[in-house]
């Protein structure tokens, strides 16, 4: 593999430089000088790096339907599939919310890699039914997403949510790092220039929150508003230092089309992970509402709590995200 070295012609060996050689060399040297000089000129940075600047942020659209009004339905029944149907019917039917061509995103609670029977995650049966209803109402597409606490793949598989989504014709959006971008919510204390799962909202026209009702030691309860925690990325656990203010921020960040609380079983102890059937109580309720604060206030009853026990609800109400006085919305009470 010896390379051939160009030979110097015999008559040129040891000879002085001639005009032609001189010009060629000068031009090459000049070009090299010009390139390095101009690179230095254009890349010259007299100040050095400064403090990190806030990048311009995107916004999350308002998914609510003003003409649908503030409504809440509280359904009693042991079959969550029937209950969600009656609940939706009671507040005007799915057609009021989902129109032909809508692209629907359902934010489930898939936080933990536990089987559906433990009710630590959105139950696959109610998810399948909701997807079916959306598609029947003419939705062009339905996607399901969450950024779980446990490993995402394990969570979606073990909770049955992945299979339910696939089987009912929805697409599953896993929280890939590329889907997060920074968001600043006007009026929020903490969601400022913070990574949020905005990629899942690409082209989305309607948003539905679908969550269980669970005990939660730090905040008091995990329901609809706290469910938006699963849209947050980054080092989100740091917000536990001021969790009530943070959940208020979530209520400001997300303006959903609908929220649905599945209280067929309520996790009354050892939440939000649960882990045992004995942590659950049969409460036979499904709540459907266009007002997430009202829905959570109604859900709190199943945990034996009043809005005053949950500072985040009072804060969300004060911030204008909804009302904790859900009875003022004349709840439609039906039996599933």
């Amino acid at each position: 593999m010896t390379k051939k070295i160009p030979k110097v012609p015999e008559d040129r060996k040891g000879a002085g430089i001639d005009r032609r050689d001189f010009i060629i060399r000068s031009v090459k040297a000049g070009a090299a000088l010009a390139v390095s000089g101009s690179l230095g000129y254009f890349l010259y940075d007299p100040a050095g790096p400064g403090p990190a600047s806030e990048k311009s942020s995107l916004a999350l659209p308002d998914f609510s339907i003003p003409e649908a009004g503030k409504k809440i339905a509280i359904v009693t029944g042991h079959d969550r599939v029937k209950s969600v149907n009656s609940g939706l019917k009671a507040i005007g039917g799915i057609g009021t919310f989902i129109r032909k061509g809508d692209r629907v995103l359902i934010k489930v609670n898939a936080a933990f890699a536990t089987p559906p029977a433990l009710c630590a995650t959105t139950h696959p049966e109610i998810l399948s039914e909701l997807v079916r209803l959306c598609l029947a109402a003419g939705a062009a597409s339905v996607s399901v997403t969450d950024n779980p606490i446990n490993n995402p793949e394990s969570c979606f598989e073990l909770s049955g949510i992945g299979e339910a989504a696939r089987a009912s014709g929805a697409s599953l959006i896993l929280p890939k790092e590329t889907l997060f971008s920074n968001l600043t919510v006007p009026g929020a204390n903490f969601i400022r220039n913070w990574p949020v799962l905005l990629g899942a909202f690409q082209g989305i026209t309607k948003l539905i929150g679908l969550s269980p009702i669970k005990d939660h030691n730090r905040s008091g309860a995990s329901m609809s508003i706290k469910n938006w925690y699963g849209l947050i990325g980054g080092r989100r656990n740091i917000f536990h230092q001021d969790i009530h203010t943070f959940i208020r921020d979530l209520a400001l960040m997300v303006k959903p089309t609908l929220v649905i609380l599945d209280g067929t079983f309520t996790m009354i102890s050892n939440g939000p992970t649960g882990g045992s059937i004995s942590d659950l109580k049969k409460t036979d309720t499904v709540i459907v509402s266009t007002d997430q604060v009202a829905a959570d206030a109604a859900g709190a009853v199943l945990l034996g709590k009043a809005p005053t026990d949950l500072p985040f609800l009072i804060k969300a109400e004060q911030a204008g995200a909804g009302t904790t006085d859900f009875s003022s919305l004349n709840p439609v009470r039906v039996t599933g």
């Binding site: 939660h216 730090r218 102890s269 992970t273 045992s276 004995s278 942590d279």
Partner: peptide
């Protein structure tokens, strides 16, 4: 405490 998966 919140994320501990054991019951209790």
């Amino acid at each position: 405490q919140e994320t501990c998966p054991v019951s209790p």
